[in-house]
Design a protein around this nucleic acid. Structure first.
Length: 489
RNA sequence: GCCCCCAUCGUCUAGUGGACUAGGACGCGGCCCUUUCAAGGCCAAAACCGGGAUUCGAAUUCCCGUGGGGGCACCA
């Protein structure tokens, strides 16, 4: 059974979509899928100045990465095509004219300079900002004069001078504004493009949108839209204005808070399922204990009326935790597929068998796919360059000879150990440490440093087993050489 | 300056008048496990912005403050 729910995500192609916008898209998508409705992608490209060349691709890529599929949109078409506002201009122009003809809007001939000047004066006098309605009450003669001068007018909404406008918001309840605080908004710009306010109302109506979801930074604009629906005599959709996402400084999340586009998160090695789960929990919760939600869980459990009205601070630590959680849940092959591109990008010669063998060793140790590189790169290079000082560490700083002896003994053990697997290698090395009366931990640290040139690595014996006898021996030999080389004092 | 929205641990949140000694998660601290680092297990610290009102009873309802956020473009 399909419902008549029709919702849309309507971004502007002004850059890589922001996590806040994508969260709004996700809530909208969940709502559509849950109600077996339609999720529509509409591109609001009415500001030519702010448009970015590959803006559309960035939007599509972001949505696809998270699996937020759409039923109608600029690439797939649909019964209400086109889905790009720049291709729907005649529609807006026609309705703008209709508003003028019916006394709900008027032409305004004020120059941008005059408007700027007016705003400056209002600011100086600490008056409310807004258009002074100079052209609203113009005589026909004046109007003809302006026209004869060739001034291209804009069309403004004629907001009632008195009274109040109220509309209902699913998340915030009734929102009421005095009409005197509502500006005579420009609806149609002099370049023939609509502003957001006209385009959104005309399109939502035309596309039979049932629920309007958007960020709650639109709350103050609601009355303009309500007034437009009234003027047109159209039924207003349900409005749900979702709370914003903020940075740690409690300001609207933006570029200066670091990575904010979902594509950047993808590039840093976050998993889409983690991102989905994380974003869902910002401003929404299901009950008092459930934290992990799969995509299907969310479709089943999500509801707009459990969305919090207050803004949420974007918490990287929690994202990292969730990403680690989902990484641990991945089958090794999938994890390998995810990590591979990052290793390639680092210029490493990746051997698939080794990569797969190493997956269980890194799985609990990384929070992002990208982090795996620094943890396992030594598997994919010919040899490593440990530093003498790091090799000796604290334990052997004063007994370099003992370190050399330890490495030599390890070499002998590695040469002969059979079978060449982690438990057997561990048994041998433990016995060896005892025989040399060296602390097992100290010996392991030395060997770790020798074969990886790192102090933090996956478990040592598993690492040796995967690295193989030959390469392990070569690296141990090299480490002994480094210890032998006399440092000048 | 004007207008609107919001307010529970540091953060995300549960809570819809008595079941609240305010629950969970991340993070933080401690312990256990342990070859490093993680993961895992256990334990702990940590919040109802303030004041009034309603009520037998208020985190929960109402009012006033305060604080925070957002908006006030021929941007969306």
């Amino acid at each position: 059974m399909t419902s008549d729910v029709r919702v849309r995500f309507a971004p502007s192609p002004t850059g890589a979509p922001h996590v806040g916008n994508i969260r709004t898209a996700m809530f909208t998508w969940l709502f559509a899928r849950q109600h077996d409705g339609k999720f529509i992608l509409r591109i609001e490209d009415t500001d030519q100045a702010r448009e970015v060349e590959n803006g559309l691709e960035l939007i599509l890529e972001s949505l696809r990465w998270l699996g937020l599929n759409w039923d109608e949109g600029p690439d797939v078409g649909g019964p209400h095509a086109p889905y790009r506002q720049s291709e729907r201009l005649p529609l807006y122009q026609q309705w703008a004219e209709w508003l003028v003809a019916h006394g709900h809007a008027y032409r305004c001939y004020c120059t941008p300079e005059r408007l700027a000047q007016m705003r400056k004066e209002q600011e100086a006098r600490k008056q409310p900002l807004g258009y002074d309605r100079k052209c609203r009450f113009m005589s026909d003669a004046e109007r003809r004069e302006k026209e004869s001068l060739g001034i291209v007018p804009v069309i403004r909404l004629a907001v009632p001078l008195t009274g109040t406008t109220t509309y209902h918001d699913l998340i915030h309840g009734d929102v009421t504004l005095d009409n005197k605080n509502v500006d005579d908004q420009v609806l149609l710009k002099s370049d023939g493009f609509p502003t957001y306010h006209l385009a959104v109302v005309v399109d939502d109506h035309d596309m039979q949108i049932t629920h309007v979801t958007r960020g709650d930074d639109w709350i103050s604009s609601g009355p303009k839209h309500a007034l437009l629906y009234q003027a047109f005599g159209w039924h207003m959709p349900v409005i749900a204005q979702l709370p914003m996402l903020m940075g740690p400084d409690r300001k609207k999340l933006s570029k200066r808070h670091g990575s904010t586009s979902v594509i950047e998160f993808k590039q840093q090695g976050y998993l889409p399922e983690a991102m989905l789960n994380f974003l869902a929990r910002m401003g929404w919760s299901y009950d008092d204990h459930t934290e992990i939600f799969s995509r299907d869980d969310l479709i089943a459990m999500f509801s707009l009326d459990k969305v919090h009205p207050s803004p949420a601070v974007f918490d990287m630590e929690k994202l990292n935790y969730l990403n680690g959680y989902y990484i641990r849940a991945l089958p090794p092959l999938e994890l390998a597929k995810g990590i591979r591109p990052f290793l390639d990008a680092a210029g490493l010669e990746v051997d698939n068998d080794i990569l797969l063998a190493v997956m269980p060793l890194v799985q609990t140790r990384i929070k992002t796919l990208k982090e795996a590189v620094g943890l396992i790169d030594f598997f994919f290079v010919e040899d490593v360059q440990p530093m003498r000082e790091q090799l000796l560490g604290k334990a052997f700083a004063k007994q370099p000879a003992q370190a050399s002896a330890g490495l030599q003994a390890t070499c002998d053990a590695v040469k002969n150990v059979e079978p060449f697997d982690a438990p057997t290698i561990e048994r041998e090395l433990r016995a060896l440490a005892e025989a040399l009366s060296v602390k097992a931990g100290a010996l392991f640290t030395l060997v770790r440093e020798a074969i990886t040139a790192k102090s933090v690595t996956p478990p040592l014996f598993e690492t040796i087993a995967v690295l193989g006898r030959k390469r392990t021996l070569a690296r141990l030999e090299r480490a002994m050489q480094i210890l032998r080389a006399r440092v000048t004092i």
